[in-house]
Design a protein around this nucleic acid. Structure first.
Lengths: 137, 137
DNA sequence: CTAATTCCTAGTAAATCTATAGAATTTACA
DNA sequence: TGTAAATTCTATAGATTTACTAGGAATTAG
């Protein structure tokens, strides 16, 4: 399941994607428009900025705006930024790989192979859902 | 990601699936065989029993055994028993549906449609992985 | 200079997760 | 009928994570 943070991030991106080109959105505007707690959203927008999904203008009349095409941002990327691995266990993850601590030494995790198959399918599906595809809906 | 509980449950089912027909496995045997904390495993086996994946024989020489075909038990079912919904949000879930609390009233969640597509693909993949397919690996 | 905004660092309450403890119950069998 | 070996049940503890909130520093426009 998605964390609230990831869900809010998606909704914030959706909000930004719906605005006119060149429009800069203040945090409070996004918070009210997308129904997200404002102080929590502040953190999320900073995370989105660090993840290079959005950029900001500071000071008076500042705010946030998308710096990537909404056709290009996939659910997989947002998931990875906020909720980490898409695979069901670290040992089956592409981007967050860690060996299982509880697997017998030197032996491969008995679940790994199956979980990699699931990861591949889930990833493919998540890469198919973009911010643009959600806006259009 | 899977919880430890779900991971241990899968490993326990795998262990049981590898035993001879009619063999009854004690908790301690499964715990050592699959490298799972014994007391934690006790709870997990009771959950698996309540979920009708296994049954038990009490008392001396008691233990646990599968009551469903290993070809029939899918990762999707185990996930649902221990970790709940497969969908990324409750509003996109088949078995654990709940409306989004933060979506504007009467309006549908903007994420729901995309998340249902992902759920369908993930579910299909998870239904394709059985205990038997993991054992064979 | 001031108002409005982003940016940064903490902190906190509640929930959840990962177990562990201890005792009650059930059963096989000598 | 007593005992050992097992499941079953209830409670709880500690750690971690989640979902925020607080407060102020830094930045910018006019």
């Amino acid at each position: 399941m998605l964390s609230h943070k990831a869900k809010y991030a998606l909704k914030a991106l959706l909000y930004l994607a719906e605005q006119d080109e060149n429009h800069i959105s203040r945090t409070i505007e996004i918070a009210e428009g997308a129904n997200i707690p404002k102080k929590f959203l502040e953190q999320i927008l900073l995370d989105l900025k660090r993840g290079r999904f959005v950029s900001s203008k500071q000071g008076k009349f500042g705010g946030y705006y998308l710096i990537r095409s909404k056709n290009d941002i996939t659910l997989a990327e947002v998931h990875r930024l906020f909720d980490g691995a898409i695979a069901l266990l670290p040992c089956a993850s592409l981007n967050f790989y860690e060996p299982c601590s509880d697997c017998k030494t030197e032996e491969e995790c008995s679940l790994r192979h199956g979980l990699m198959i699931i990861r591949d399918e889930t990833l493919k599906a998540m890469q198919g859902i973009t911010i643009a595809s959600l806006v259009k809906k």
